[in-house]
Design a protein around this nucleic acid. Structure first.
Lengths: 127, 127, 127, 127
DNA sequence: GTGGTCTAGACCACG
DNA sequence: GTGGTCTAGACCACT
């Protein structure tokens, strides 16, 4: 599990875990029926309380991305989003963002600039 | 004040109020030295606790977007640097879009690409 | 909140809470937009950890039976199941039970007797 | 052994196995002194851990439904009091039906009424 | 005051 | 070993 928790992130920790695992699943870093690290392993590795990891796993199960085999572990579901569907998703999210930008009298360039700025917090502090 | 509060929005209500008023100011719906609705009016209209509205107004004052005349009310400041405020609006919209992208396991690049693609309907795109 | 937790019940506590509140809502003991006891109140009253109550409330929210107003409390949603729909529900549950009974070579009488027996654990111990 | 394990079922797997075998015995699909599949066969067939199957067999032995001939296998006992076993089957089916009814805010009476109604299609009921 | 998140532990049934 | 439930407490943002 090659990711870290950013305690300065505004997102709750369990949401960060969900986002990262979701990314790994959709990107293929985690394949169908592959086991996720156990709640305890992940908790040790990320230096978190097992409950926090468990919360993330449970939400992922509710989302339908993973399934649980009792007494065994948590596994990636098969039959998840194809890349075709991902294009649609991107389209949907993008159009929502554009609509919101228009409502705020923002140009596309301003929106894109803000997104790029937000997503690489390397240079200087924002706000 | 033609706007609504979305209690299912992730943003706190006072932030929603701030964003909406900022938007109105930047777009010209509220002009310099024009009075905002009183805290109580706004609270009744939006069915909110007056404290929540007051918090929003106070933050807007700290940001320098409005000023208070004690005993009279709250007014839009003149000489607002619209570009600065637009940045804040962009920041807000961008972070909401980013969160939505993450929830759908989209990378920043994919999101930006989709936005740019959608906003340039030159090359014969459908819909 | 006129109900108790049965620690000898096989159901987890938070499920018991959910079942009872669901019952109260559908039966009219809790009306639309009426507030549920706060997590802490309920926890004190039932002598439970607040987290346990919170878990029940969150699940009920996910089920769409209640909604949360942040900073205020938890409320009964309006527009919940009519009695018409309840008949359908009863029909569905009953037919599932009957099918399962048939699969086990049980007569209707045996099934009904077992249900009645299970639901009134007054007389003697079962099994 | 024509049955399947439902990993989404609330019942533990070893209980599901027990219920199914009990059902087969009561219904006559398994006759006295007939051999059950070996633990390993069953485990392979149902894709389960042999320990799980062994646990089910052990419990069935404790219940007096089967007996073990060491080095040979597990066999159905003769002289089983079918009525007693039917009660257990009824108990299981009834408790599942009750749980489902509770999840849908149905009272016991409503459930029983629906069952009786469904099972007596004398008075011109539809469907 | 409210619910939301998190930690540090515990015990349990299941496999 | 696994995940599920529960307790006892803490801090947080929001209203």
């Amino acid at each position: 599990m090659p990711f870290k928790i950013d305690s300065s992130d505004v997102r709750p920790i369990y949401i960060q875990i969900m986002d990262e695992i979701r990314r790994l699943i959709v990107r293929g870093g985690l394949k169908p029926d592959e086991a996720l690290p156990s709640v305890r392993q992940m908790a040790v590795q990320l230096r978190l309380n097992p409950n926090t990891v468990a919360q993330a796993y449970k939400e992922l199960e509710r989302e339908g991305l993973v399934y649980v085999r009792r007494g065994f572990g948590t596994y990636v579901k098969s039959g998840i989003r194809s890349s075709r569907e991902k294009e649609k998703l991107a389209h949907t999210v993008a159009s929502m963002a554009l609509a919101e930008a228009r409502r705020n009298a923002l140009t596309v360039d301003e929106l894109v600039a803000a997104i790029l700025n937000l997503s690489k917090p390397e240079s200087g502090v924002n706000e």
